[in-house]
Amino acid sequence: MPGSQNHQLKSDLKKLLVETCRKKIPPETIPDDATLIGSDSFLGLDSLDVLEVSVALKKRYGVRVTDSKDALRIMKTIDALADAIEP
């Protein structure tokens, strides 16, 4: 099952994003397909947030991202992120 169909995983990822980036919103309000990065996006994450999340992803899921371009790509949406963790 690709990660984007795993609701538990996606719910966990939302919590992880909100906690890691210290965002003051309820995690469940993040739509699965909303863009996360950029000032106009739902979460408004920037490159530094993406790096912080990368460190958290490695700790939690063992996913190793070493290139900032890859990091930006996999964190586009919750669906994309879930698929990157469980392809």
Binding site: L48, L51, E52, V55, K58, K59
Partner: peptide, 10 residues
């Protein structure tokens, strides 16, 4: 072996 927090480093 642990990556450090980018926020903290900055």
């Amino acid at each position: 072996g642990d990556a450090v927090s980018p926020y903290s480093f900055i």
